[in-house]
Design a binder for these strands. Structure first.
Lengths: 110, 110
DNA sequence: CTCTTTCATCGTAATATTGCAATATAATAA
DNA sequence: TTATTATATTGCAATATTACGATGAAAGAG
């Protein structure tokens, strides 16, 4: 099968897992870290920075763009990518609702 | 190829993506939410709660256990799973270092 | 002991992901 | 115009993931 049964889960559960899925590859983590570090927009230096082929980086960038975490501006022949900070903040709020569940209840078991 | 080139990334990048990968499926998100909600340990009610077959749930539990986010105690014929709160807290610290990058610098571009 | 219950594991089919070579596209340079 | 540069897309091979039926293993009930 290999296909996730999204229908049986809540919108929130699917949203959380979609975000997490994007973070679920070290190349995408590395890209985001680099974009934060350079913070003035960079382009395809990512191909040199990360050690993957250009089409592979392009594919990872596409997934990051699809979920809205980065945006790209055309600058001559090259494209300038950077973090979409508004969406980044929004994403953190969504994730926090899931990650901070332990703050609500304090019972311990096992 | 389908195989991730982990060697070319830092330990931190691989660690973050490993955690995120586990959260990258709605069933595992649902399992964790349920374990937090019930919070007294539950067992294979998860199979009824989530709408997936028992072997599938068992497989998801295995991945959650592998990364240390849950632990299981044998109780008669059934097994009692619950959140490993210490590891959960530790996981949050690791993720926060990645998610809170935007707090450090404030430049905006694009 | 046998039967039942509960969960894990095995095997397998369907699908998804990763990575890259080849190629296409788009903009600038000459 | 053609050439170059930068990025995207296509196509494909290798591998990973998801899901589940069948089966196995372990514990309690009878």
């Amino acid at each position: 099968m290999g296909v996730t049964k999204s229908e049986i889960f809540t919108a929130e559960q699917n949203q959380i897992s979609s975000i997490a899925k994007v973070f679920g590859h070290p190349a995408r983590v590395a890209i985001l870290q680099h974009l934060f570090k350079i913070d003035s927009c960079i382009c395809g230096d990512l191909v040199d920075e990360i050690g993957l082929a250009q089409p592979t980086i392009s594919q990872h960038l596409k997934e990051l763009k699809k979920i809205g975490l980065i945006k790209g501006n055309i600058e001559g022949t090259s494209i300038c990518y950077c973090i979409d900070k508004e969406n980044w903040t929004h994403m953190k709020t969504t994730l926090a609702a899931f990650l901070d569940q332990d703050l609500e209840e304090t019972n311990d078991c096992c």
